[in-house]
Design a protein around this nucleic acid. Structure first.
Length: 412
DNA sequence: TCTGGGGTCCTAGGACCC
DNA sequence: TCTGGGGTCCTAGGACCC
């Protein structure tokens, strides 16, 4: 006999917008949308009141205003969301130590070993919902299932404030008519390809001959068939046991498309500083620098990377490397977006540089980082950035974000 | 008046070494 | 001197997720 797991997936509904509505009672019951800070911005999250007008994530602000003229636009404050998410995850951990967050507003909770304490998964789900509502005024949708894939599918079924249970014996029935695109991992392209193979539902996907799928998708075919059958053996990975971070990057869509090399370089320097300061905060350095350019037409882009001999995380080293890549690129159009990321990472050893000059540079960097951490990114930065009016977004939330801080780079 | 920003994983082809 | 094959690292690009 096989012992099966019981996994919850909790999804905070309209998270950023709900947090804002809680923080400011004047926003409650109103159509609001949270946006990023920079010039060409899109809707990050909207309240359900706004959604009823047709406002959607990813919409340009002007478009949201067109479908919902009375919409209230709020510039997001990521610190607020991080704080709240941390507290919510603490609640989850009262019911099991096995909590894995998936972005800032979703978590899986493996309650297999907690059932005897609390009675049932449904009881736990109700307790969690009640506590989150009571403590933060937030609602969440919860899916209960034998694995992560189905739990996430479940939490998507009823929004807001839903509870959807997939019992092990019901898996086949639930999946039979479920559209394949409901599965986490099947995006537009895979959906289209599967649809062209006359596969529309999970039931159909699960019954498809494996060889047909592998012929089309290679090794992924096996995984797709399993997904169609509701099979997912991936474990809930708790805090401190995640894989190390693999890259650190920043990109920014410019307020206006630019062609002036001086302006491009100035932006590159700013991005280098953002990447460097975060790499240093994570205590990592890397030897591959990736430069990404999106051109004015939005669709054409150019990405180039280079791997150097030594591991770096100083902003000016990153800048120099990015610049050397830029110098190999013939710009085709004005530039819309610039991005830099650092990968091939390793944990930075704490050892001080041998030479006095490098030590001084390190100390100066550390002092600058400290101030920036206290007063927000880019409070202190290189001289050539001063003329720029670009304000950095308030503290990024990478997917690797964890309520406890960065992924397990420092653990053990 | 258009379309953000942070990541991960996978593939394919080439360079290089043994 | 010629030939083959495996392993690893690198680059470029695409799909997917929040």
């Amino acid at each position: 006999m096989t012992e099966h797991r019981t996994v919850l997936h909790a999804d905070l509904n309209a998270f950023f917008a709900s947090v804002e509505q809680q923080a400011n009672p004047a926003l409650r019951g109103k159509p609001i949308a949270v946006v990023g800070g920079s010039g060409r911005t899109v809707i990050t999250t909207s309240s359900y009141e706004a959604r009823s007008f047709g406002v959607r994530t990813g919409m340009a602000v002007w478009e949201a205003k067109r479908v919902c003229p009375e919409i209230i636009i709020v510039v997001g404050d990521n610190r607020k969301y991080q704080y709240t998410s941390t507290k919510v995850n603490e609640i989850f951990r009262d019911y099991s130590p096995e909590v894995e967050s998936f972005g800032i507003d979703e978590s899986w909770i493996d309650v297999t070993h907690s059932l005897s304490i609390f009675g049932s998964a449904v009881t736990i789900a109700h307790l969690i919902k009640a506590r989150i509502l009571h403590s933060f005024g937030l609602r969440c949708s919860i899916g209960i299932a034998p694995n992560k894939l189905l739990a996430k599918l479940g939490s998507d079924q009823i929004k807001p404030d839903g509870l959807f249970i997939v019992n092990p014996e019901d898996v086949a029935r639930v999946l039979e008519r479920m559209p394949i695109q409901e599965l986490c991992g099947i995006g537009k392209k895979v959906q289209k390809t599967l649809n062209m193979m006359s596969i529309y539902t999970c039931g159909e996907l699960g019954r498809t001959e494996l060889s047909r799928l592998t012929a089309k998708f290679g090794i992924v075919g096996k995984r797709l068939k399993e997904m169609g059958q509701g099979v997912d053996n991936s474990p809930v990975v708790p805090y401190g046991q995640e894989d190390d971070v693999k890259s650190v990057g920043h990109s920014r869509t410019l307020d206006k498309d630019i062609s002036d090399p001086v302006e491009i370089k100035r932006f590159l320097l700013q991005l280098s500083e953002m990447v460097g300061s975060r790499a240093r905060r994570y205590n990592v350095s890397g030897k591959t620098v990736h430069l990404y350019i999106r051109y004015a037409d939005f669709f054409s882009s150019c990405g180039k990377q280079t791997t150097i001999k030594s591991y770096i995380n100083q902003s000016d080293d990153i800048y120099r490397t990015a610049l050397s890549i830029l110098n190999t690129i013939e710009l085709e159009q004005p530039v819309r977006l610039l991005g830099i990321s650092l990968s091939n990472l390793k944990n930075q050893d704490e050892q001080l540089p041998l030479f006095e000059e490098e030590r001084q540079k390190l100390f100066a960097t550390q002092a600058m980082d400290k101030i920036n951490q206290r007063f927000g990114e880019m409070a202190v930065t290189y001289g050539s950035l001063i003329p720029g009016k670009e304000k950095a977004g308030s503290h990024v939330i990478p997917p690797s974000w964890r309520p406890d801080g960065i992924k397990s780079l420092d653990v053990k």
